[in-house]
Every structure is written in C-alpha cells, then in structure tokens.
Nucleic acid binder design. Structure first.
Lengths: 208, 208, 208, 208
DNA sequence: CATGAATGAGCTTTCATTCAT
DNA sequence: CATGAATGAAAGCTCATTCAT
C-alpha cells in the first residue's frame, strides 16, 4: 500500500542474480534462470537492466561498495597506520573468502570479454585500492625519496591478497595446511610491503 | 600396421585443444571447434576423452608439465639458492603472463564446478610447488626450528606470484604503472618470503 | 487549453517513424525504437495507431502524398504533354531511388500479409497513377478508338518505372553499367508507351 | 534399403523452406518453423546448412536454375530471334507470377542485408540475363554502331519484366484491369526494346 | 493523455553428447 | 577406429501487444 513493492522485482532480480552467482558461478548465470527463480519472464529483466552485462555491472558495483564499507569499517578502530594496514588486509581477505563468487565477478572477469564496459564503473574499484594506498603512504611518510612508487607498492600488496583469495577459493590449497596459520602468514607477508627497504638496497642485498 | 599412428589422432586433438585454448581462450574451447581444427568429427574426440572435462584435465596436466619444465630449466644456471629462487619467480610470472588462457585453465578453474573431478590430477600440480619448496628449504636450511612451516611459506609465496599473474592478465592494473618495475617489485616482494624473520618476531613487531 | 498540442505527439510519432524508416529500413522499424526516438513509451503509440500495421498504413499514405506532390511539381513547367510525361517519369524514378526504404514500404509490401488491411488506403496510391494516365491520355487524344485501354498503358508504363527503381535499389544491376545512361534509357523506353502504334499493328509486325 | 533416404532430411528441409517461403513470405521463414514442420529439431538443419543465409542461398540457387531451365525450354521452338524474345519474356513473366515467393527471394532480397553473400551465387543469376542479351544481340545484329550498349538494353528490358512481376505479385494492380491483356501489353512494350531506334533519334523525335 | 509493468512468443545459433553403424 | 545423423537444452535478446492505473 505504501508501495514498498514497486521496486520489488528489480531488487529480487538482483538478489537472485547474486544468489545464482554465489551458488553456481558466473558461467551458470543466465537471464532465463534468474527469471525462473524470481518468478517473472526473462523479458522482464530487461525492463530493469539493459542487458546481461548491465546486470553484472550492477552486481560488481554492489560488491565494490560492500567491500569498501567493510574495509573502512575494519580500519576505524586502528589508530596506528600499521595496525590499520593489518586490519585492512584481514578485512580484504575476509571479504574475498566469504563472498567468493562476488569476488570473482568483481576481480576476475576480464574486461575485454565484456562487450560494453562502462569505464566509470572502475572508479569505485579504484577507491578500494586507494584506501590501501593512503594507509601505505602514512606508514612510509618519511622516506618519500627513496621508496618505490606508492602505486606500485599498493599493487604488489594487492597481488598478495588477491592471490590468497583466489587460490583458496579455487580450492587449490593443500588441505593439510592449517588455514588459520596460512592466513596469518599471508597477512604478515603482505605487511612486509610496508617494511620494505628502498629498491636499491633490495637489489644489492635482498636478504640479510 | 602396428605403427603407432593410432595415437596420432589423440595427440593431434590435444595439440589442437591447446592451440585453440592459447589462441582464443577457454570460452571458445568447444569440442566442435577442436574437431574442426584437427580434421575429425567431434564424436571422435570421445574415443579418447570421456568428455570435455577429461580433455581439459589432460590439458591441465600437460600445462603443469610444461610449467615444470620451464621452472626447472630456469633454475639450472643458478647455483646459489636465492638466485635460484629469483629465477623461479621470474619463470613463473613469465609463464603465466605469456600463456594467460593456459594459466587460467590450470589455476583458475574451480574443481567443484567440474563434474567428476579426479583429485589425482592435482599431484602434478603440486610438483611445481615443491620446486619452490625445495629452494626455499635450502635458503632456510639453518633455522628449521623457528621458521614457519615450509608448506605455508611456499603457499604464501605462491599467493604473490599468482596474484600478480591473474590481476595483470585480467587487465586490472592501472595502465599508468610501469610494467617492468611492477614485475621487479613483485619478485622482490616474493623473495622476502625467503628473508622472513621468525613468526613470533613477526607478530610482535612486524617492522623494525 | 484547447490548443492543438494534443496532436503533437501523434505527428511526432509519424515523423519519427518516417525518419527511422528512411534511415534504417523497414526491418528496423519497431514500435520501441520509434517510441524511444520520439521520447514516449511504446504504449503511447497505441493511443494513435491501433497497431503497427495502422502506423505503417499512415506512413504509406503520407508517402503517397509526398510522391504526388513531387510528381505534380515536376510536371508544372512542362506545357507539352510529352515533355510532361518525361518529367513525370524522371520524378518517379528520382523519388524511388532517393527514398528506397520509403518506396519499399509503399510499393513492395504485400497487402495479404498485413492483417486487417484497409483497401481504402489504396485510393491515394491510385491518384499517382492517374497523373500518369491523364498525361498519357493527352498525348493519345486523337486515336481513342484504336489504342489499348489507357489504364493498361499506364500500368505498363508503371511496370517499367517500378522495375527500374526496385532492381536498382536492390543493387541487382551490374556495377559496370553507367547509371546515368541506364536511367536515360529507362525513361526513353517508358516514353515509348506514348508512341506505341495500335495493338493490332503491334501483334502483326512489332518492329519495322 | 537402397538408401534413397540418406538425403531425405536435407531435401525435406529445402522443400519445407520453399513451402513456408511461398506460403507465408520471407519474414516468416524461421529455422524453428521449418524444423517443426519437417519433424526434426532446429539444430538438425544446421547439419545441412551452415546458417539461415546458406539455406536461403540454396533456395535462390534452386530458383535461378529453375528459371534458367524455363527460359531455355521456352526459347527452343522459336527459330526467329524476335519470336524467341517474345517467348523469353512470356516465360519470365510466367515464372515470376507462378512462383511469387521464389521470385521474391531471388530478386528482391537486398544483398546488403545478407551478412554473408557468396558472390559466386550471382553468376547463375547473370546467366539468366545473358539469355536475354544474346537474343537481343541477334535481333540488333546489323546496327552495332548506333544502338545503345547491349547490357543497358537488356537491363531496361529486365526493368519492364521485373516491374510487371513484382507489382502484380504485390497485388498492386487495379482489379478491374484484364490480366491477360495487361500481360500482352507488357510483353509488347518489352519487345519494343528490340525495335528501338538509336538514342539520338529517340531524343529528337520520340513520337511520330 | 500517457505510462510503467509485464508478458509470451519468437528469433538464430552453439553446445556437449549419444547412438547406430 | 571413426563417422554421420540427430538431439535437447540452453543461450541472449527483441518484438508487438495488453492492462491497470
């Protein structure tokens, strides 16, 4: 009556799309299947999303926002940059491991495979990296001259986290390995980005 | 009469499957297309591979072997463990970046999504990790007591490399970042695994 | 309040339908597309046109009127019947060649394939033929007794012109043929209708 | 038993395609409909025709061949060129009027709307025009110097015939007109191509 | 006068797979 | 050892149209 239902179908569609995606993966996500599950015709989906890509973009968007929230929430209690960074890493891993298919659409889809990719959608994605960048910058604040580019460092940090999430989600990890310790070590290793000596030193004598 | 020509078709199929995979990507890898390219009918493929999954498993197998060869070849000239490790990291990245589709099938396919998955297939995959493990073990040879489990360390190292390969292949990296420097830094960061202090120290004061 | 603005949408729809037709062809003429272009919903079109056929009939009507105008305008300066006829032929060809999609809808649609076809719609179409008829009649004014039926002659003339328009628009003409000369000859041949000897002579000795 | 049936499905498909085409027109010709009518799945059609275009091309081809046969058969008994020409015109009209949809696919489809048009298919189409050309050439044999290009004359002749076929098939002809006389006059007019004076004369004094 | 929501039928095409031979 | 024939399911998408408001 107070029309909380006028947007129902649209959100049901997104809900169901997310569900199918999470449960069965990207390749099983079809318009028809969503429609069947949500109780409308495939055609109706097109009333709300111009095409399948648009629907997926909405999902990605949603995921990026969710991740951003989780990252920001996790970083709040930490007042020291390094602690903040550790919290961020943990939050990122958590998000990726708890929302594996979400994560997959967000970070594993190859853009060249999406016909129409709205560049604008990447902005929100970058925002998440910037959260890491800023914290990393705070840690390294003193020695701007000698450290490698902040963008590069952030990306390398991202590599670690992303590798952890995707390999674990793809069940590529030996089951005999203790999951908790693995995650701890992954975080520790990631944090070493923050402790890296300058690249010149690195090259000459990487270990000590 | 008893010439091994009968095995020709089987190997042609695998060759062609690999070619299609590398050239056009996993999503274009269909039985029909392989058959057309190899000059037989789609039906014939089923003489040698129970189904598409089986064929893909064979491809994965082959890819793992190829990667293993490349890793071993790259490590040969290095007689110092750390140099060896650096060579291994570089070789891994190179393989992943030069064979993106191959790499994807090898490491990004979710086993639970393939029907009838023979767990046995992963054995060869693990061999590749062992190459890293052994080198890592050699570096850490002295302090077995205090360092974290070798398997764990190797896996964390793998995270870094895998993250680098997949994010770069998925074109998720800011184009303004210099590719070469990024790779150098990724390798450097990965090598820090070999330089890690003991975990207890890590936890208390990760930097210093 | 009583301003004729209410007729605006109706005419916009027709305008847009014509534009889409001319620019993109009959096969792209869909209710949705028209609605999108005109800035209303597809549903609104049904307020003014019972269905797609009705809309198309309106278009045909309009096209017939347009053709009529062009024919009449072209014939104005000619005071001699034969010159008038030549002008009419040229104008007809011009119209057909310059508005291929329009022409197609006007003259190539099969009425039996349109549901609910209002035969009355053809009246305006016939007016265009009458323009030719009248001129033809003026040329032949003397020998009413022996010439074939004027309607028949006009139709045969129409055959020539229509054949020229449609084959050229369908790109069925050998590209090595000079377009201008072809048109000249087509007009010349059409004009021979006006110069035809009586049918009896025709049959006995068509040439000489 | 003597396997006259091995090619049955293929020919049934073509038969049905032709039937649908003739009965309901090009726009109603769908793979599904053909499959349903012929009793197989839509997929099976693709065993014999690579896609819808290929199927249509087969139809066109068939039609062109049929027309050629009819033209040649009709011309046989005539030993005088002009009589031969008259027979050809009549045969062409007959073919077009008796196989309206066939004719439509053959001559009214716009090639630019067919994605993949095999240029080779046009060869057979041209052969049919050449039959006219040759006969026209025989009539005009003496005065090669002054007559317009033979190709042009043939095309203009074709205009007349094509216009007659298409307008009649599209039911655009006033029902009060006697069909037989109309056809006679159309043939007569077409034959005037063979009797045309040189273009220069035409222009100076078209009627006498 | 106009809309928003929804439908159902339809489209071409691709796919992995099976079965009789 | 290999094929040719055929299937059934599924895909993304567009269409004209309706109905309640």
């Amino acid at each position: 009556m107070t029309r909380p239902r006028s947007s129902t179908l649209q959100s049901s569609i997104l809900d169901e799309a997310r569900r199918v995606l999470v449960a069965e993966g990207y390749s099983h996500l079809s318009m028809r299947r969503i429609a069947a599950a949500v109780g409308c015709t495939a055609t109706s989906i097109y009333l709300y999303y111009r095409n399948k890509d648009a629907l997926i973009h909405a999902l990605i968007d949603e995921g990026m926002e969710l991740l951003q929230e989780q990252l920001e929430r996790s970083a709040l209690p930490a007042d020291e940059p390094l602690e903040r960074m550790r919290a961020l890493c943990r939050a990122y891993l958590e998000f990726g491991l708890e929302n594996p298919e979400y994560y997959e659409v967000m970070f594993m889809l190859h853009p060249e495979r999406m016909d129409r990719y709205p560049a604008e959608k990447y902005r929100r994605a970058r925002r998440n990296l910037e959260i890491f960048s800023e914290t990393l910058g705070a840690i390294h604040s003193g020695d701007a001259a000698e450290r490698p580019d902040l963008k590069v460092l952030t990306t390398v940090l991202w590599f670690s986290l992303h590798g952890a999430v995707t390999l674990m989600n793809a069940r590529r990890i030996d089951v005999s390995i203790d999951r908790k310790e693995l995650l701890d070590q992954a975080v520790s290793h990631s944090l070493q980005i923050a402790a890296r000596p300058s690249p010149s030193q690195m090259t000459s004598s990487p270990i000590q």
